[in-house]
Each structure stands twice: as structure tokens, then as C-alpha cells.
Design a protein around this nucleic acid. Sequence first.
DNA 1: AATGAATGAGGTTTCATTCAT
DNA 2: AATGAATGAAACCTCATTCAT
Lengths: 181, 181, 181, 181
Amino acid sequence: MTRDEILEKALDIVRDEGYDMLTISTLAESLGVKKASLYYYFSSKDEMIAALYESFSARLLHMGFRMDFSKSAIEILTETFEHWKGIFISKSLSSGLSLIEQRKEIDERAYEISNSLELMFRSQSDAVMENLVSRGHFRNVDPKIVAELFASAAIVRLRSERSEEDDRRFLNSFAELFLST
Amino acid sequence: MTRDEILEKALDIVRDEGYDMLTISTLAESLGVKKASLYYYFSSKDEMIAALYESFSARLLHMGFRMDFSKSAIEILTETFEHWKGIFISKSLSSGLSLIEQRKEIDERAYEISNSLELMFRSQSDAVMENLVSRGHFRNVDPKIVAELFASAAIVRLRSERSEEDDRRFLNSFAELFLST
Amino acid sequence: MTRDEILEKALDIVRDEGYDMLTISTLAESLGVKKASLYYYFSSKDEMIAALYESFSARLLHMGFRMDFSKSAIEILTETFEHWKGIFISKSLSSGLSLIEQRKEIDERAYEISNSLELMFRSQSDAVMENLVSRGHFRNVDPKIVAELFASAAIVRLRSERSEEDDRRFLNSFAELFLST
Amino acid sequence: MTRDEILEKALDIVRDEGYDMLTISTLAESLGVKKASLYYYFSSKDEMIAALYESFSARLLHMGFRMDFSKSAIEILTETFEHWKGIFISKSLSSGLSLIEQRKEIDERAYEISNSLELMFRSQSDAVMENLVSRGHFRNVDPKIVAELFASAAIVRLRSERSEEDDRRFLNSFAELFLST
DNA sequence: AATGAATGAGGTTTCATTCAT
DNA sequence: AATGAATGAAACCTCATTCAT
């Protein structure tokens, strides 16, 4: 058993059964190990949870956002959206997100990660919109507000798991709305 | 002591200290009562929590949305936003919202309320945008997408408690973007 | 509501759900009354239980045993057995018996009633056998031992609820064994 | 501390203070352990009680009945009775019996053990009486009824703890009654 | 005659944790 | 590296009881 295996299983429990089901007992049991053994790896439950945040935070940072701006505008929007979707869907991140969502109102550490995640979305959205402006799209329009609208809509959508079809319609409507001409 | 006083205090605890601090002990203590007394009002903790959802649900429904459509477009947007803000800020609703946010990933009952809340925002946003269309605003634009963008941005904003100043800027930008003649 | 109604319902609970289900709560509930009301009739649960024993005791004593000794020997045995069976079966006594059985190992009061019940069986059995002796049955046999055997077999049988058919066979065998000329 | 030590102490409590005094608290206290420790051995109180029945049941089965039929008739009756008495008196079984007696009206598991115990007595009594018949005793008499009478009388006697003197008299009377030539 | 409201004591169970091995 | 055995604290809940109304 390794620290990482423990952390992974812990996140699985949080995602599948909720944060309050993440107890030393259930965690040990689902690892097929005795409770006391976990204390060899972590000196306390809280230290383990700190490691959980830590590792999720680190993994988020690795989700580098590198956009190929040679593509068409609609492709850029779509890929940005897909990039974000990847975070909500990837096995390795989605359960971390679930932890953050469940704890952000209560746990300072979760709150900060949640904030920085939203900031990340905003700044990536900003970057995208500024690029589109530089290519001559939406004349006379503040790209900041478009960026906010795009990021917000994406966040809300991704949280409520819409169908791919529905997401595609949204992206098309959004493009049509702002990129015309 | 009344059932309502208990529920109110319970929500206070959820908002201020988190759902997992809502225990019969702490609740009784902060009401200045003995634990056993709570069982006179609720036959179990779960029944109490059900009542919590129930009462929040009921109060949400009472937040009827009636817009005075004789106002100017920017006023309508502003008041819609303020109406929603009222939900997030009002003493009587904000702590209920906190409960919903904390539990929606885990508790079916919270999940459903959260869903219906989002639906409410969407449909009110739809109504507003359709009215604006009927007044000649945003020609050639699908009001559905504008409605989604407005509602999403509002939800994200309200969750992260921006300054009034910042909200005003957002509303102005939004208006400028869509309502220009 | 009267004391007797309470006592009756209490015995029903003991019989149907066991002594440990006889709580003030369940009792009040099945009487359609609030807990506090019971304290108008009994100053404590223990007093109520004392009344339970008392009333059962009294009812037992009223089960006077009067045998018509002009009948045939086999009829006398049968009627004696039926008389005892009446105690185990009668609505008004069987639930009291259930109380006694459940508590006799623990509660002195139940223990004494149980003892006196057994004594009653023994002495009635004695009386019957002595009468049969006086009529010339079982010559050279100590009626005491026959009485004990009859009473014991009856007690064991009645506790384990045999079929009527089976009881009849037993009585015939018993008669045949001892009454043969 | 072992599971068996716990079970033994539990039975002691049941015998000495009654089933309703068998609480996790009192049990832990009389074992000189903390309540939580008991849950290392049993996952719930009910599981512990199941183990209680189980272990009593197992011990009963080990009370094999092997009679030396070369002995005299009166010796066989006496030893059979003593064998049964052993069950009611042995440190290891008597408290189990107390549990069964207290719970047989309420708890299915106790009820079944109680039944099988009575069956055991009956069948051993049957075996004894058939042997006596084969040796020429009680001619023209159904050994079944004699067996029932013997077993019943023994059960009633053992439950009410008569003196040895009294038991001896009973056995002699019984022998005299049935075994005469 | 009956009850609404409250309580203290004690019930079973779960939790994170420790420590010798 | 892992565990068996134990624990203190705290969780939820039930019990018999009281007392003013």
C-alpha cells in the first residue's frame, strides 16, 4: 500500500458516498487493511485530508491550458469548453472536485482551491476572448464581459451535467451571438 | 421553544459551522435546552433535517417573482438580479442555501431543491429576456441563450459574493452588450 | 379511561410484544393518550406493574375449582385438565400468565405468583386423586405421586400448546394407566 | 479478554440480575473494560446475544446422553434424572438456561432452543422407558406415556429446585409405581 | 382528567486515536 | 509495514418522570 493508493480510495469514497462517509474505518475496510495501519502513513485523519487537498491542487496545476490559436474561433471555444469538461470528467480530478464542492463552505482549504479554480476558468476565458478580439471578432465589445459570461455558463453547465448534444447547441448559439461577422 | 425556532437555529449552525457540526448536542446547547427536549419536537434527527428542507423549499416558493415590465430594460435586469441576490442574502434564506450547497452532492433531498432553484433562475431569466425581445431589444438573437448567460453569470456571482460596485459594472456591461438599440 | 383499561392494554403489550416493550411511551400510544396522563392513574411505572400482578393474582383466585365428583373418573380427569387449560387460554388470564412467565426469574412478585400457581395445580390434582382413591381406583398406589405426575404433565403440555387431539390421547392413556379397575 | 470471557460474564449478569440488566455499560463495567472495547469483539449487542444462544446451544449438544443399561431399573431412572439435573445446575449451563427461560416468550432464538431442550428430555425419557420395557418392566403399559410423565415431572421439579431428599422420594415413588415386578 | 413541555439518566453505537508487538 | 486490542469522547436516541396548566 502507498500513500497515493490511500488518497485515491479516500477520494473515491468522498465522491461515491459523501464526505461524512470518509471515516478511518470505512477507508481501511475498503482498502482491505486494518485501521491502525493507516496511521503508519498519516499521523492523523486531518493530515490525510490535507494531503488530499494538496494532491488535488497539484494535479489541477498540471492541467496546463495551452490553446492552439491557429484554429477557427468556434473550434477555440469548443476546445476550451472541452478542456474544462475534462477537469469535471477525468477519473483523477472529478472526485477531487467533489471533495472541494462538498467542503468549500466549511473548510478554508477547500474554499481556497475552489476560488483558485474559478479564477483559473476566468483567466483562461479572458485569454481566449482577448485572442478572439485580436483576430477582429466582436468589435466594440468589452472582451472581459464576454469572458465572464462564457466561463460562468460553462461552470454552471458542467456542474449540472448536460448532454453533449445540449452543450454543442450552447456553443453554437454562443458563437453565433458573438462571433457573427 | 417552537419547531421553527429549532429549525432556525439549526440552519444557523449549518451556515456558521458546517453541516457536520449540526449535532443534537450542539443544537440543544445553543438553544439552551437539553438534548432530550428536541425529541419532543422531532422524532429523529433525520426528521428534523427533512423539516429543514421542507421549510426552505416552502420559503423559496414564497419568493414569488413579479416583475414590473413597465420599467426600463436596464432597470429590469438590475431588479431581476437584485431579486436573486435577495435569496442569497436574506437572513431567512441564505442559511438554507448554505445547507443545500453543502449537501446537494450527497443528499437526494438537497439535490432536488438545488435543481429546482436553478430551474427557477433559468425560467425567470427566460421570462425577462422574452419580454425584452417583445420590446424590440436584441434583434436577430435567440433570447434563450441570453437568458442562460444572464442566469449563469448571476449564479456564479452570487455564490462568490462580489462587491456591489462590481455587480453594477457587470449589469451595465451586460446591458450595453445586448440592449444597444 | 380507567385503571383497568390501562392494565388490560399493558398485559396485551406484554403478551404480544414482550415485557421490555411495555414502556410508558408505547403504552400511552396504544391507549391513544399522552404519556403524562398515565401518571394520573399510577404514580409510577412500578406501581402500575404491582397493580398488574395484583389484578392477575386476584383473577387467579377467582378461578375457583369446583369439581362435580359424581362424574366418571375419566370425565373428572378431563374436566380438571380443561379447567387448567382455561387458565392458559382465557383472554383475561393468558396474557397475565405471559407476564409471569417472562418475569418470574427476575421479579420476586412474579416468582411468587408462579409458585402459588403451581401449588394450586398440585393441590387440585391432589384433591382429584384422593377422590379417585376414595372411589376405589388405583389400589396400593400413593395418590400423591399420581397427582404430581398428572399436574406436571398438564403444566408442560399447556405451556407448549399441543393439539386437542394430542391432549385427548394423553388423557386416555393416563386414565388407562391408572384407572384400570 | 476473549469473546468467551465476555459471553460468560454476560450470562452471569442475565442469571443474577435479569436480561434487562444486560447492557453494554454494565457488561463492560463488570469486565473492567470500556464500553467501546466490546465492539472490538462483537459488532453489535444483538450479535453478542446471538453468540450467547449459539454457544449455549453448542454446549447443550455436548451434553451427550449415554446410559449404562446394565444397571438396575431404579439406578437408571436416578441417573437419568441426575443427568438432567446436571444441566440445570452446572455452572456452565444453568445461566444459559436462565437466559432461555427469560427470553423464550419473546425471542424466537430462545424459543427454539427451549423447544429442542424439551424434545431432548422427551426422547431420552423415551429411550430409557423402552429399555425398561425390553427388560420386562411395566407389562401391558404404553412406555410413551410413562416417558412423558417422567420427563414432565422432572422438568417441573428441576425448574422449582426441590431438595435432594424430595427428589429421592419422588424417584422411589415413581419406580415403585411402574416397576413393581 | 389530561396534556404540553421539559428533563436526567442511561442506552447502543461510531469515531479517531494509541501503543505494544 | 502492519495489526490486535483497547480507549475517551461524542454521536443519536429512549426511558421514566415531573410539573404547570
